[in-house]
Design a protein around this nucleic acid. Sequence first.
RNA 1: GCCGGCGUGGCGAAAUGGCAGACGCAAGGGACUUAAAAUCCCUUAUCCUGAAAGGGGUGUGCGGGUUCGAGUCCCGCCGCCGGCACCA
Length: 841
Amino acid sequence: MSTQRKQFPFGEFEPKWQAEWLATDAFRAPNPGDPGFDPSKPKFYILDMFPYPSGDGLHVGHVEGYTATDILARFHRMRGFNVLHPMGWDAFGLPAEQFAIKTGQHPRVTTARNIDRFRSQLQALGFSYDWSREVSTTDPEYFRWTQWIFLQLYHAWFNPETRKAEPISTYRGADPDSVRLAYVAEMPVNWCPQLGTVLANEEVVDGRSEVGGFPVERRPLRQWMLRITAFADRLLEGLDGLAWPESIKLLQRNWIGRSEGAEVDFQIEGGEPLRVFTTRPDTLFGATYMVVSPEHPRIQELTKDSQRTAVEDYRSRVASKSDLERTDLAKEKTGVFTGSFAINPVNGERIPIWTADYVLMGYGTGAIMAVPAHDERDWEFAQTFQLPIRQVVTPTESVEGVFAGEGVATNSGFLDGRPTAEAKRAMIQWLEKEGHGKGTIQFKLRDWLFSRQRYWGEPFPIVWENGSHRALDEAELPLVQPDMEDFKPTGTPEPPLSKAKDWVRYSEAASRETNTMPQWAGSCWYYLRFCDPRNHGRFVGRDADRFWMGDGTIPGGVDLYVGGTEHAVLHLLYARFWHKVLFDLGHVSTPEPFQRLVNQGIILGPDNQKMSKSRGNVVTPDSVISEYGADALRLYEMFMGPLEQMKPWSMKGVEGVYRFLARVWRLAMEEDQEGRWVLSSELSDVPLSKEQNRLAHTTIKKVTSDIQQLAFNTAISQMMVFTNEFVNAKPRPVEALRILLPLLSPFAPHLAEELWSRLGWAGRASEQSWPVFREEFLVDDEVELVVQVNGKLRGRVRVAIGAADEEVQAAAKAVVAEAFVDKRVVKVVVVPKKLVNFVVH
RNA sequence: GCCGGCGUGGCGAAAUGGCAGACGCAAGGGACUUAAAAUCCCUUAUCCUGAAAGGGGUGUGCGGGUUCGAGUCCCGCCGCCGGCACCA
């Protein structure tokens, strides 16, 4: 194939138009106040998840999402929108740093090189980004504002009264440091020895690091945290109004994990009451023992001398287990009796307190009341250790195994006979009245562990003095990492920046924070910077924010955000959190950043397996472009199937769309005797025939609505049908190209531009107004109906478009008359313009 | 285990409850050519029947149901993919 002559000279005109678009700033989007800004045009902000510029370069998976957004950006421009379609680089991150350590090159150098590679690959695809808005998270002019936003978090707290973030100055308590949205805490964190850093919960998968797959262990360390849990309810509620895939909303809801229940205090002999959380306060009468987590702070106090050795043994055994071992569900329940007893407040019963690792310190209060009759885990534990089981809920229908569902309360004193929902309410009421507890809500969501022991990240704008922290002044930003020869991890939780002694020393008494921010920091707000990327006075100008993101009066934000599912609970949750803080503090005008979200499906290798170097099934955009051109690559990725679906690559499929593009080329062009491309001699100024005109308007209509529905594959099919119709038309009406080229332009912009210009038409194809279909051209005088008998196809009939039902029935009946012999017509269904169905017996 | 999503030709896929398989790939046949490539045209779900034109049956993972009519809606299964997973 590669030695063959190309069927059309894409290798010449594709680079030509790419250069032309760049040189003329063809896709520059002016901001309010800029020359050429037209406030009468509505805005459309269409965003890609910006890439991490890895050393491997762009892959075909990137191209899929980016092509989809490019089609929509071009389409909206042609429809008269102010379109914001930017691109940038999420360039901090572990791989760059690890590569740097391996090769001895500074990450700034390798990152810059990777960015150049990515940029030129994107430009070779003809994407219509406004390159004047390009940003990189690693640019000090960018991350000064990342640091600035961190300071906003640091200087704010969440006021539970107003349910909003407010300046810390409105906080009336004694210790502001205890309520800041950015705070320091000593807590058990995910420490990854191989990576030499701590990780967020979201970055740990099955007890291993998401990056690299190294084991992760629990260690108590002093870390920066962001109080995302304060926003749990708002992050949950905000989902309702978003046009996101339900599956993604569900992932976020599950991750936030809201549970309604009650806290109950159990009296302890000779000690403070022990508090538990339960979602089933209605089963309190069935609590036959308690369990506290082995890490519970009161474990020492609760352990009686007779049990001390056993408890200590158990605790050290648990501590040595990895998270993976500990969460292995297949294993037997383990635990030890502490020797203490608690008093069940509802019936005064004395119940034993155990410790067991199936109770987690990180959720609820780290202690539970065990109701083995109605909780599978408690039931297993009770079975193992011969603890009593008391049924207090009667199922409404027969069930097998442990009944954990809802039913009717029994053996439960004042609750007896009440259905579960009502019994819960009654018990909470009783607890609150008697002072034994209260209704409460728990979340699975934890605060966001925000510091990393890395070199290649944003330094914290914080200094330490006499053991306490304080913020740098905004004027001191950006705070840039020092140039270091040796930025390797220290192998201990001590960050690499601690080795830069001069940099660390801030003043006589104060020293800098040496942790850096995680990679998510820069991507939490890049969509805002794109609105106003060169603003030196503010992270985003107010007018730019109001114009591109909306003024808050209608659901605003990014109009369409396209990216992979892998960010469902990481980036997409973090960004929403930061955005809400900025919104509360009055820095942005919309409450949610991303109005509509679409996930593109994964592209598999030709072998139906996930593309990977080790499998050797990776397809690179570069090879496809040199063989078939950028337009063919773009078109193929859109033609493969629905955007959101997972689908395998097929080089034969690329050839198919390549042939289609060649056919479009030959609609307009032919070779002369010397093999040069000249305008086709078949082209003529004749008007379209009635049928051709109908097809043209059907095509405009279908392509328009398919693009709006992101159904690019069927839009392309329709353009193929249109093209096939004209390939052999003699004479060939040039009008067909005048309609087709603008429609094709968002998909195959180079080809459309080239033919438009060769046909000698004014302007560029990409600048034309989008064609408008006219309904009156779509209708025919006659229409063919399907004739069915008992729902089975038995014939066809042509009738006039306005024919009355009786007329249609009569015509249809004539077609299938013999089917009625010895039969009786019971019913006739007439669907206008579609079919006639006779029901006979 | 729980929660999602998806099952249609040899393959990628189409189909507001109304002609299942548009469009593309692959395959077969033909035209053009000294030949090939490219291009263009035709056939292509499957079974039965017929010399042929044609006619008939079956068919959207499986089993039921609703409907004049189901790939599409409802109930119950099976399979694949993804997420969560001792969260009380």
